[in-house]
Structures are given as structure tokens and as C-alpha cells.
Amino acid sequence: MLILTCPNCGIACDETELTPGGVAHLERSGPGASDAEFEDYLFMRSNPKGVHFERWRHSSGCGKWFHAARDTATMQVFATYSAQVTGPTAEVLTAIRAKYPDYTLPEGLKEARP
């Protein structure tokens, strides 16, 4: 059972206080998107063994969403960070590279715009 620190209220939360929200940093496809783009946005998800970016909501706490960078195999948590970014921040990438020096972001995912 995971412990994730909510970056909004600072509490190290037990997983029972949290609601998972699936993969992070999806870019929304709306009207005008091709069928393929829309299919990608709505259904296609990666299931990596290793570094993964996720959305979590501190639902039984402050109610705020946040992001977590986590290793799906070892359960190591590299960082939790703001929900209001379009990709992992430089600090998050630094934390990941402390463990995996050669880590690069998967295709389609970009570092957060400053």
C-alpha cells in the first residue's frame, strides 16, 4: 500500500486517502482531431515496467490533484509534483536520473513548459 506525499498540503498520505487518476500528462484531443489522434487520447495507454507518471487525487484529504513519478516495478517514488504542469518538471527528471542516469522521457512526453 503506497505512501505518496501530497504536494498541495504536505501530508504523507496512505493510499487509502487517495484516488488514482491514471496516466499523467495526456494532451486532450477535441473536435478537429482525426480518429487516430482521438483514439490515442482516449484509449491508448502505455503500461511501462519502470518509471511512470501518474495522476492522484488527495480525495479523502485536501481534495487536490497532484502528479507522481513512480517506479512500477520497485514502487520507488521519485517525486510528487503539481497537477498544473504539462509534463514532468526539471526537478522530477533530476530525481529520476539519480536512480536511472540514462533515463529519457518516452515519446510524446515533454518536460514541463516553464
Partner: peptide, 13 residues
């Protein structure tokens, strides 16, 4: 309510 908060916090922040 959670659905609203999801969109407000994570998409149209």
C-alpha cells in the same frame, strides 16, 4: 463534483 474538480485542476487550471 470530483469530475468538475478534475477538469478544473488538471486541464483548465
Amino acid at each position: 463534483h470530483a469530475h468538475m474538480e478534475d477538469w478544473l485542476q488538471c486541464e483548465w487550471w
